[in-house]
Amino acid sequence: MRVCGVELKASEANICLLSKSDGLFDLPDCRVRRLNLLDINSREQLQEFQFAFAKLMADYKVDKVVIRQRAPKGKFAGGALGFKMEAALQLMSDIEVEILTPSAIKECLSKNPIAIAFEDTGLKAFQEVAFVTAFASLSR
């Protein structure tokens, strides 16, 4: 199964592809590491963001998108733009989209720790949360 972990931060979606086959994890190469939404008030920009994300998932034959949930209120609450982007991803019709809470991710990692240091994955530092989210989803 191939999943795409997503962390929504400000006006960008940081992504990481991860697949699991026969108990082995694989980090496939991906031409995109993050997608940006430039104009928060533009309907066309939001549709382009959704189309670009859906096209990327189709091109890499991703089975499921896993988004790390953000707090709706409080000190670490996500902004309105992030929730718009999350809705655009959830409304994609051809792919399953799941939202994982930080507590579910933490619980999964306590039962199934990551066997490799993040620095050894070859991913960029900003992709770490997306990688951990994808790993937690595949380890459940």
Results as ranks from 00 to 15, higher is better:
Val32Phe: 05
Asp39Lys: 05
Ser11Ala: 13
Ser19Gly: 15
Ser11Phe: 09
Gly122Val: 13
Ala134Glu: 14
Ala117Leu: 14
Phe49Leu: 02
Phe53Trp: 00
Glu119His: 05
Pro28Lys: 02
Ala136Gln: 12
Ala130Cys: 12
Leu81Gln: 12
Ile15Pro: 15
Gly122Ile: 13
Phe135Leu: 08
Gly74Met: 08
Lys111Thr: 11
Ile114Cys: 09
Ala115Thr: 14
Leu38Trp: 01
Leu109Gly: 13
Phe83Ser: 12
Asn36Phe: 01
Glu96Ala: 15
Phe118Ser: 12
Leu24Gln: 14
Ala54Arg: 08
Glu107Met: 11
Glu98Val: 15
Val32Asp: 07
Val6Thr: 10
Ala115Ile: 06
Glu12Asp: 03
Ser19Leu: 13
Glu96Trp: 02
Ala77Asp: 08
Phe118Lys: 07
Gly5Ser: 10
Val6Tyr: 10
Glu7Ile: 09
Arg70Leu: 12
Gly79Lys: 00
Ile67Ser: 02
Ala117His: 06
Val65Phe: 09
Arg33Leu: 03
Asn14Ile: 04
Phe135Lys: 05
Lys20Gln: 14
Gln90Ser: 10
Leu24Ile: 07
Gln127Thr: 14
Ala104Lys: 02
Leu100Lys: 11
Ala10Gln: 13
Glu86Ile: 00
Gln50Met: 10
Arg68Trp: 06
Val6Asn: 13
Ser110Pro: 04
Ile99Pro: 01
Lys20Ile: 11
Ser42Met: 04
Asp39Gln: 02
Lys55Asp: 15
Asp94Cys: 06
Glu128His: 13
Ala80Glu: 02
Ala125Thr: 15
Leu91Tyr: 05
Leu27Glu: 04
Arg33Asp: 09
Arg70Gln: 09
Pro102Ile: 02
Glu119Met: 13
Cys108Pro: 02
Asp63Gly: 10
Ser19Gln: 14
Pro102Lys: 11
Leu81Glu: 03
Val66Trp: 01
Gly5Ile: 13
Leu35Met: 10
Phe25Asn: 06
Tyr60Ala: 04
Leu38His: 08
Asp120Phe: 09
Gly122His: 04
Ser110Gly: 08
Phe49Trp: 00
Glu12Val: 15
Ile67Lys: 02
Gly78Trp: 04
Ile116Val: 15
Arg31Thr: 14
Ala88Lys: 03
Pro113His: 01
Gly5Pro: 14
Thr121Gln: 10
Val66Gln: 07
Gly78His: 03
Ser110Met: 07
Leu35Ile: 05
Val132Asp: 00
Gly78Ile: 08
Phe25Ile: 05
Asp94Arg: 06
Val129Phe: 07
Ile95Cys: 05
Val65Asp: 08
Ser110Trp: 00
Lys84Arg: 05
Leu46Gln: 11
Phe126Trp: 06
Leu100Trp: 09
Ala10Val: 14
Pro28Ser: 02
Ala71Gly: 06
Met92Tyr: 03
Gly82Ile: 01
Gly23Leu: 11
Phe135Ile: 12
Lys75Pro: 00
Asp26Lys: 13
Leu56Trp: 01
Ile116Met: 13
Ala88Cys: 04
Gln45Asp: 14
Asp22Gly: 07
Lys75Met: 05
Glu96Gly: 08
Ala115Ser: 15
Ser19Ile: 08
Ser42Asp: 02
Phe131Ala: 11
